[in-house]
Structure formats: C-alpha cells, structure tokens
Amino acid sequence: MSATRPAATTTDPLSREPVVKVTSLTKRYGELVAVDDLTFSLEAGTVTGFLGPNGAGKTTTLRMLLGLAEPTGGEALVFGRRYHELDEPARRVGAVLESNDFDPGRSGGDHLRALALAAEIQQSRVDEVLELVELVASARRRVKTYSLGMRQRLGLAAALLGDPELLVLDEPANGLDPVGVHWLRNFLRSFAEGGRTVLVSSHLLAEVAQAVDQVMIIDRGRLVAAARLDELTGTGQTLEEVYLELTARRAS
C-alpha cells in the first residue's frame, strides 16, 4: 500500500503488480467533492480496512473501482485494468455493496443462479457457495423470508460465485449479530490466507480491527492515513483514538 506513506518494499514476486491501483481519483457531484484526489494501492494477500465516517466517500470510491460510477478525474484500476475491461470480472473480483440487493420475490438459490448464468458459471458452483455460507436449507425460499444475517451471507455467496481473487465489501458488518461478525472475520482471514485480497469498508472500528492487517482512513473524500495496523497503533494509541484524532472535525 502506498499513499501518504510509501509502500514497504515487498519481496513476494507474486505481488509485483498491485491488485488495486487508485490514482488521483476524484468524484464531484456539482459543488460537492465526494472523493478528492485519492491515491492508494493494494498488494495481493492483504486484508485492508477502509475506514471513515459516514459520507466520507468510501462507498463512492468502491463504486468507481467497480465501474458502477464514473470518476470525475483520475483512475481506479483492478488487476491493472478498468473494471469493465476485465475479461471475466466475476472470476477476478467479487463485491457486496449493499446488504439487500435482492428481488424479495426470488429465492436465494435462484438469485445466485441468475448471476451464475450471466457469468457462465456452473450450477455446481452455486451449490458450493450456498454450502459455504450455510444457506443450503434456505436456498429455495424467497429472499423476503430471510433474516438480515441470511441476506448478508447470500450477498457474500454471490460475490464468491466466480471464486474471485479480490473481494470488496462495503459495510459488511452492519446489522450483524456477534456470531455473524465472528463468522465474517474468520471468513475474511481464511480468504486472504490463500494469497487473495480483501478490501473492506466500515465505520465499525472494533469489528474491523481484529480482521485486517492494514487500514486506510478517509475523511471528507481525502486519505488521511494509510498504514499497517501495528504501525498505526504502535505508539500505544488504539485504532479508535487514531481514527478520532484523524477524522476530528473543526468545531463550527
């Protein structure tokens, strides 16, 4: 990761090309600057927490990275390309942006099947990811009957359909109970252990601190810190203290 601090030189030959490379990324909505000249990159095999207050620009950044929103300036590359230039994006990148992106009248299994058909992924893989997120028994029920935790897991299953190398999650811990959070943390760790990469945004610091190995903090669209978690908290401060200091707003 290189941002406000230069990246540590890595010895891993596999991670020469950054998985994510964001350069001077900017998004304006009229007068409002949602993302302001953001630059960072992510190496393979890392779990990065993308932190910041609500409205800091986290979601907008992720949407630009995933080709859902067009940058006003700069660029966001995944595996060296813009998202829509990837040959089989579902096999490279999996993402969950909202916890409830489902048609309530469609079953969980059919939701996955529709995406699998579009991505030319076998039905057997649909069964695998259902197994992985422990939704096999509910796969034929319509999503309107699902609890929030089940919806979160179904979203994750959709992101995992293509067995991607990069996982992007926007606020995945929102509304999860302690068991769900624990499950998610373990999942993220095991996902990254195989050399794969996770970018997870959150404003819930406690949930994030235990799962990530580096953090980026943004505030009002600008990157205010980017470092390994142990570096950031090395001075004896907790992540929360560092975060509050960096994102403190001037009294108006």
């Binding site: 489902f102 048609d103 995406l115």
Partner: peptide, 18 residues
C-alpha cells in the same frame, strides 16, 4: 426498473459490466 428498485442492478452490472 425492478432491478433498480431492488438493487439487483448492482450485482447484475458487476457480473456483466457491459
């Protein structure tokens, strides 16, 4: 509009960005 209303347009465009 159903996809936009329910948000499935996001996974739809992620899987097929064209």
């Amino acid at each position: 509009t159903g996809e936009i209303r329910h948000g499935t347009i996001r996974p739809t465009f992620l899987v097929n960005p064209h």
